[in-house]
Nucleic acid binder design. Structure first.
Lengths: 105, 105
DNA sequence: ATAATGTGCAACTAAATGGTTGCATGTCAA
DNA sequence: TTGACATGCAACCATTTAGTTGCACATTAT
């Protein structure tokens, strides 16, 4: 998996909104995902393409409509391999931070 | 905390590299952080500004040099409040995904 | 068959992004 | 005090990004 693609995909508010909607109900069509969103359908299409490239969303064509499914794996990967690394040394990092701020005066 | 600023800050490879360096050793100066990086000092300055706006880095001026400290809190917040939400329903999401892929044929 | 629905594709635009160069300013050491 | 070092600031540039409009195409329903 390419962590860069995932981070880039998560950087946009609209795309996180789409992920939230798919998290609430996976398997929605493009039109469904467009509802109550202030951007155009074409813009949503582009966002979904980016989410698919990051493997955060998988889509399936069924007749004339396209169903979109949330894939939670890349987010889990990032949480494990990247975030926990920072969390592990959280206390030490905060201590260093505090110490640095004390040196100010 | 503004989750959007944090996600945006994390979206760039150079900035994640800077965070990694500060994670390895917190309290580095600007020049130290520039070493062995192929971009200019001015570019690094901009990246650090963005990281500070996201509260991922805190800096302290000491004489003519500026020390940078990693603040792990925002990353922890995102991991907890945002990512764990996806992790909780991971099994269900994967089941839905699998079911959707089966409907393809 | 025809109309409505759902999606795909291309061209275009404005703004944001990541980077540069050049120069100014402040601080420390000899 | 003078030079070296560390950082700040501004203008500029190319590319990417997020969005748009307009039209084409395929599928379903009447």
């Amino acid at each position: 998996m390419d962590a860069d693609l995932v981070f880039k995909a998560l950087a946009d508010r609209s795309r996180r909104e789409l992920l939230d909607r798919l998290h609430a109900r996976s398997g929605q069509t493009l039109s469904e995902l467009c509802a109550r969103l202030e951007i155009t359908r074409q813009a949503v299409t582009k966002h979904l393409e980016i989410l698919e490239q990051a493997n955060l969303v998988v889509s399936v064509r069924r007749g004339r409509e396209k169903l979109h499914y949330l894939n939670p794996v890349p987010i889990g990967d990032i949480a494990e391999r990247w975030m926990s690394k920072y969390d592990r040394n959280r206390v030490a990092a905060l201590a260093a931070l505090k110490k640095g701020l004390e040196n100010e005066h």
